[in-house]
């Protein structure tokens, strides 16, 4: 089976490192982006199978990046990462087409479960 490619978008390197480690151990291939603009760029160039994206980032935040990605690809599978549980932000993300949201800090299992549902 082809390796599935996951785009991790987070301005915090640690989050990306953590996420990447979890995913690579499970046989996913990983592409990283540091902000929304890079995320859109990488989404077009790398065509990942799913995206894990932080909500609050410099340059372009996750919500706007989510909207842009969904415009490029209405079937895009995106889960949002969030450190704060602000219901209205999360609701915005869901309205913009996010399929899941994961609260930081998260357990590896949570990410893996979310991905397997996203990729179904």
């Amino acid at each position: 089976m082809m390796q599935q490619k996951i785009l991790i978008v987070d301005d915090a390197k640690f989050m990306r490192v953590r996420c990447a480690r979890i995913l690579v151990e499970r046989g996913y291939s990983v592409v990283e982006a540091e902000n929304g603009i890079q995320a859109i760029e990488k989404y077009q160039n790398e065509a990942p199978d799913a995206v894990l994206m932080d909500i609050s980032m410099p340059e372009m935040d996750g919500l706007n990046a989510l909207r842009a990605i969904r415009e490029l690809d209405p079937a895009a599978r995106v889960a949002m990462l969030t450190a704060m549980g602000q219901q209205n932000v999360v609701i915005e993300a869901i309205k913009a087409g996010a399929r899941d949201f994961i609260v930081k800090p998260f357990e590896p299992d949570r990410i893996l479960k979310s991905l397997s549902k996203l990729l179904m």
């Binding site: 301005d11 690579v24 410099p58």
Partner: peptide
């Protein structure tokens, strides 16, 4: 595994120096 992928972005982060500071949106920890 600090840098499991060979993506350009992460390799650039490994280079210490001031170049990054000149960038507008420097990734932050």
């Amino acid at each position: 595994a600090l840098h499991p992928t060979g993506s350009g972005a992460s390799r650039r982060e490994l280079i210490p120096g001031r170049a990054a500071q000149m960038k507008e949106a420097e990734p932050q920890e």
